[in-house]
Design a protein around this nucleic acid. Structure first.
Lengths: 204, 204
DNA sequence: ACGTGTGAATTTCTTCACAGCC
DNA sequence: GGCTGTGAAGAAATTCACACGT
């Protein structure tokens, strides 16, 4: 794999390019680095450099074919396939996640959900029924799930994450407002509105 | 203001330091750059450098007093005060946001919520009643609200954001899976699980 | 003429390493 | 001895600027 060599900061921009391309596709078939850059707040040169890490997707004088670039980015990001997800924690936030249908359009499917609370175990949602957290490992192995969303209270996040890793999970998207300490081969991302709020008040 | 000169990448780490300090405070009164770095996955030198941008918070040989550093960071981030927030969009996600009580502990209070849908207008939540989106400007001005959370569908995000800016909003935390184009003086942050998912599948 | 892809130049960010103080 | 704060060094990311294809 050569992938390791491409800086994560570049990888992190690719989903944003993808998103903007999907919007542009509604109205046009071609775009260029200048237009993309303007939309995203990056320089045109940066966009060209980033994309050039993975190949030559554009044409001189013309720019980029949007459909082709979308396909290419999906291939690079491994999003040209479906992914099964396990949700851990079906509280207020977990409910919202389960009811949100926006993930499946992009190939992310919440195939299973677990909680410790008997009141929600057995509850049915669009794509799955909440199961006992004791069955977590079993569920992960049977369905070969690699990605988990963590929506448990902050106090339980670390221990739950460790159990997920033991059970074979490879990547965690944590909604818990806590920094997790996990082995480096486990991919952890945080989605954390509080951090964002505290970041922006600095400038107010 | 000298603030402009401190890179945003450093500012963005400060809330993370804060978060880790709050956890450490449970068990100890003092910490040091090495311990903080280990918890967060940063080098000790980086933490010292970041903090040194704002003053001298540590003591040689001893490290940092946790309470003092927490207070200092809150002061730097402007989070040593309360902030009122307007929520725009009370759909599935908006409901979850309104029911989530974790923000207020950190001084962020959702004081008002608006939507376009008559079925939710008038609905009561802990801290506010949903009002008609037509009253948005009025609400912002009367309550002098500077921060908005945007939880409308992607299609409406851009136009709604523009209306928020017209109405005097200074910062937007967008939950919509879209990149917003707004004047540079408006602070925009995104909280976007899809981007995170697409980022991590790259490595799977 | 237009816009990509890319070495080179530049700027920014991170780490090193150590003087100085507790 | 331990740990901070910080210039200097080093690494990384970004931008420049231009040759080249359409």
């Amino acid at each position: 794999m050569i992938k390791e060599q491409i800086p994560d900061i570049i990888v992190g921009r690719l989903p944003r390019y993808l998103r903007t391309l999907l919007i542009l596709r509604e109205t046009q078939t071609t775009t260029n680095s200048k237009e993309l850059g303007k939309r995203l707040g990056y320089s045109a040169a940066q966009i060209r450099k980033d994309l050039s890490q993975y190949g030559e997707f554009g044409k001189q004088g013309t720019g980029y074919n949007i459909d082709f670039l979308i396909d290419s980015l999906n291939h690079i990001l491994n999003t040209d396939r479906n992914w099964d997800i396990l949700l851990v924690g079906v509280g207020q936030l977990g409910h919202a996640i389960l009811n949100y249908t926006g993930f499946s359009k992009f190939g992310f499917h919440i195939r299973a959900a677990v909680d410790i609370n008997p009141n929600v175990i057995g509850k049915k949602f669009n794509t799955c029924v909440v199961q006992d957290i004791g069955k977590m490992k079993e569920i992960i192995e049977e369905n070969q799930i690699q990605i988990a969303m963590l929506a448990v209270p902050a106090e339980n996040a670390q221990e739950t994450a460790e159990k997920l890793v033991e059970a074979g999970i490879k990547a965690i998207l944590s909604y818990a407002p806590t920094t997790l300490s996990l082995p480096p081969e486990i991919r952890v991302e945080y989605t954390d509105p509080l951090i964002s709020l505290q970041h922006m008040t600095y400038y107010l």
